[in-house]
Amino acid sequence: MLTYRYDHQVIQISEVANNDDFEFRIRIIREHPCLEAMKKVQQEFEHNRVYTDVLFYVYPNHEFHVIVRKDYYTDFVLELMKHRLLQQVEWVPAP
C-alpha cells in the first residue's frame, strides 16, 4: 500500500475509505505556495478526460473535500507529491 508523510505546519490531510472511493479533507495552512500547488492538482484532474476520477469541492478558508475513486488513489497521491504538498511517499507491505 501507498503511505505518505506531510508537513503538519503547512497542510492538514485526513482520509476515509468508502465503498468505491477515498474521501480526503485537505486544509491548506500555509497559503504560499501550497494553495497554488493544490489548484494545479485540481486543474490536472479536472482537465483530463475522466470526469469522476477525482472530484474537488472547495470550501472557504482553503479547505478542500476531495472524492477519489479507488482506482485513482495512487494517481492522486502522486500528484500531491509532484506538487510538493507531500514530503514523502512510500510503498509499504499491506498490514
Binding site: Y51, T52, L55, Y57, H65, I67
Partner: peptide
C-alpha cells in the same frame, strides 16, 4: 452540464 452533474450527485 454533465461533469457538474456528476460532481453534485456524487457529493
Amino acid at each position: 452540464m454533465v461533469p457538474v452533474t456528476f460532481s453534485i450527485t456524487r457529493q
